[in-house]
Amino acid sequence: MTRLASVVTVLAFVLAVAPVARAESPRDILVVVNRASTVDSVTIDELRDVFLKKRASWRSGGKTTPVNASEGSSLREDFRKRVLNMSSSAEKSYWQKRKIKAGESRPAEFENTLRAVFKLRGAVSYVYRSQFKEGTARVVLVLPAG
């Protein structure tokens, strides 16, 4: 009886702390790479380094070409908050300094990031789940909405 109680307790605990399967949302941000890329997955830290050009290659190898959504778009704003964790103004200041210090320019901007990733070898960018089309790019990270 004691053993049964223990098992029940453990099961109850596991169920309580187990992650609840989360429904997909059209506002999820999918981080995508070119289909030819050998990258399978990336971390947010790695992604932040790539989009701030603190690293030029993936940890698993291969050059990166970060592609941003157009400035002012909600996609860009969401990505900035969730990955870069900075305001638009702070990002601008960051790039002003990088330009002067290291001669480094900010990533290219495209209105349709999926198209850029589809065409540009080494490209990495992001789209809302609702904009993603199967077969055009490989998803390496999902950033849940909210």
Partner: peptide
Amino acid sequence: EDEIDFDEMGASSEFEPSLDVYGF
């Protein structure tokens, strides 16, 4: 069709050379 559209906008699937001019 996508290749044609991409060519029309002057881009290529390879790395595109760029030159930035700026200052302070």
